[in-house]
Each structure stands twice: as structure tokens, then as C-alpha cells.
């Protein structure tokens, strides 16, 4: 078992702690601080959230995606051929993202997350940091396509561009690479397309490759997941209870990202409740094939509650570990 998180972490704390990133971005927007000063704050806050994750007991962390406004525009801004458009609701959340508008052929221009990952790994020391990207299929689904006018072409164009990033991550010895693909749950009929792009991505990455889903049901994908050439498949067991049905048939050839702590509700799970859910999974899945994590990224919660949730998650895992010894 490995204790991990899905992707983002709340960017600002609540009083009495100071919301310094919010203030810094506001000051930068008003021209009161320089880009360098803002970057310094981004780094400081990234260090803080790395420390928080580690102190909570997370064993495979992220950089918290502190620089990301949302899962789409942070990537799209660094690719050629894309403009950033209006605000759209992110799935069923009261959270919004800026829509990428595809105006021309998509091309990789500059490192997207490589430098963020390098810095985060340096600050995290011997705790591994996973590199996280939004997957090509989800990027395509959440974009407005004024160029390819074809979902398959657009998805493959995103994949081709992101593979340039994957190559860099591989060169820099990234051990864990995760792509988020929540959109596939809403269009299970596109699974062949998903398969095709992950077969391609797999060629360029030798470490642990993960695909994470969240917010919805995975049951329509149940018999297909095993075909994905990946090491870890993440599922949200909170938003849809019926996803527990997948446990008994979960593929033996990969690990499960077991999303059991509610990333979208403040109600705090107890370590006992978490331990029970882990034991339920251990009936079907080998210990070494379980990554225990929240149901989604943690930015839907106030920072302090996100931390408490991680603390209890780690306590729950350790209860089970203790009993096993």
C-alpha cells in the first residue's frame, strides 16, 4: 500500500495564516509586483504544501499544482495553436476552468511541468513526487475545436504534443507519471481511442504510468480497463458508490488508485472507516497493488480540512498495516 494524493492541493490557508498566494497574484495583476516576485511566492507555497503532505503521512506526493489555474489552461498556455477562452463549469463542481480554443495545429513549445516537477522533487527529498498532467482525451473533450473539427484528430494531436513532455520527464528520471482522464467516464464509447493514445504514450515512459478518473461511474468501462497499457488506474469510490462493484473484477495486471476519502465534502472520515474500506479492497486486491488516496484533487476543500483528511487517511492505512504485522 502506498498513501498518495490525486493532484491539486488548496493554494491558500485560512486565518490566522496569511493567504499570501492570493495576495501575490492580485498584486501581480495590478502591476505592483514583478513576475520574479510572484514566482518566488509560487515556490514558497509549493514548498509549504509539499511539507504539509509529507507531515500528514503521504508517501507519494504532488507539487500541489500551485501554479495551475485549472487542469486545462495551464497546459494549453504552453502549447502552440491554442488560445484561452471563456469560463466553463468543471464537471459537476461549482468550480470553473478557462476553455482552450484550438485555432491551429497543436505543437509542444516548451516544458510544461518538467521544471515544476524538478523543483518539487528537490524540495521533497527522498519522498517521491509524481508528475501529473491532464490526459489528451480529457483535454480534447474540454476544448473548443475550431481547427481539427474532429475529436479523434484533436485527441491525437494533444497526445503527440504531450509525448514531447513525456520524453523529457523520462530523460529526467521521473518514476511516476499520471494522466487524469475523467472525461472518458462520460463517453465510454470512446475507449478504443483512449487505448490507442495510451499505447503510444507507453512507448516513451518506462516508470509507473497511471490514469486517474474521478466524479463519475466507471462501471461501463469495467471490462476494458485491463487492456490499458498502464500500471495504475485511479477510481473515485465516493462520488459513485456503485464503483465498489468493480473491486472483485479489478484487473490483476495493474494497481488500483483507491479514492476513498471525499475530496468534495468537509465531513471528516475516521481512521476506522478508512481502515474498513481498505480491508474491503484487500479481499480482492494485493497489498502492493493498492494506492490509497482521496477521491479527487483536494482544492475543493478548505486547506485545513484537506490536511486533516490526509492525516486520517494515513492513520487509517497505518491501522491496517499494524494489524497485518
Amino acid at each position: 500500500m502506498i498513501i498518495t494524493v490525486v493532484d491539486h492541493y488548496p493554494k491558500i490557508p485560512n486565518p490566522p495564516r496569511e493567504p499570501k498566494l492570493r495576495k501575490a497574484i492580485h498584486a501581480y495583476d495590478q502591476g505592483k509586483i514583478t513576475k520574479e516576485e510572484l514566482e518566488k511566492i509560487f515556490d514558497e507555497v509549493t514548498k509549504e504544501v509539499i511539507e504539509e503532505q509529507i507531515s500528514a503521512g503521504v508517501e507519494l506526493i504532488t507539487d500541489g499544482q500551485i501554479r495551475w489555474e485549472d487542469g486545462q489552461s495551464y497546459i494549453a498556455k504552453k502549447l502552440d495553436g491554442i488560445e484561452i477562452g471563456g469560463l466553463f463549469r468543471y464537471f459537476d463542481n461549482n468550480t470553473y476552468y478557462r476553455q482552450p480554443i484550438i485555432k491551429d495545429e497543436i505543437r509542444w513549445r516548451e516544458p510544461i511541468i518538467l521544471n515544476d516537477w524538478k523543483k518539487a522533487q528537490e524540495w521533497a527529498g527522498n519522498i517521491p513526487v509524481k508528475a501529473v498532467l491532464t490526459g489528451p482525451y480529457t483535454l480534447a473533450r474540454l476544448s473548443r475545436d475550431e481547427y481539427y473539427k474532429d475529436l479523434e484528430k484533436l485527441t491525437k494531436a494533444y497526445a503527440k504534443a504531450l509525448i514531447e513532455e513525456v520524453k523529457l520527464l523520462e530523460e529526467n528520471k521521473v518514476k511516476y507519471l499520471q494522466f487524469n482522464e475523467p472525461s472518458i467516464q462520460y463517453y465510454p464509447e470512446d475507449f478504443d481511442l483512449l487505448l490507442e493514445i495510451y499505447k503510444e504514450i507507453r512507448k516513451y515512459f518506462s516508470g509507473k504510468l497511471a490514469t486517474y478518473t474521478y466524479f463519475h461511474t466507471v462501471l461501463p468501462l469495467k471490462d476494458r480497463i485491463k487492456d490499458l497499457p498502464i500500471d495504475i488506474f485511479g477510481i473515485d469510490f465516493v462520488s459513485r458508490k456503485e464503483n465498489f462493484e468493480i473491486l472483485k473484477d479489478f484487473p490483476k495486471n495493474m494497481a488500483l488508485g483507491y479514492g476513498i476519502v471525499d475530496a468534495r465534502n468537509t465531513k471528516l472520515e475516521t481512521p476506522d472507516q478508512i481502515a474498513q474500506l481498505i480491508k474491503q479492497a484487500l479481499n480482492y486486491i494485493e497489498d502492493e497493488n493498492l494506492y490509497i488516496n482521496p477521491s479527487a484533487g483536494l482544492e475543493y476543500l478548505p486547506r485545513e480540512r484537506a490536511y486533516e483528511k490526509l492525516v486520517n487517511l494515513a492513520k487509517g492505512v497505518n491501522l491496517v498495516r499494524g494489524e497485518k504485522k
Binding site: T95, Y96, E299, Y300, R305
Partner: peptide, 17 residues
């Protein structure tokens, strides 16, 4: 009322509990 959660960009709101 909860602490702050982000809705988009640099905008935050206090979500009811």
C-alpha cells in the same frame, strides 16, 4: 460557513456547511 475554496482563477468563496 467554511474556510475559503477557490472557484476559478484567483477567486475564492466561503462554502456553506
Amino acid at each position: 460557513i467554511s474556510g475559503l475554496v477557490r472557484s476559478y482563477g484567483n477567486r475564492y468563496y466561503k462554502k456553506p456547511i
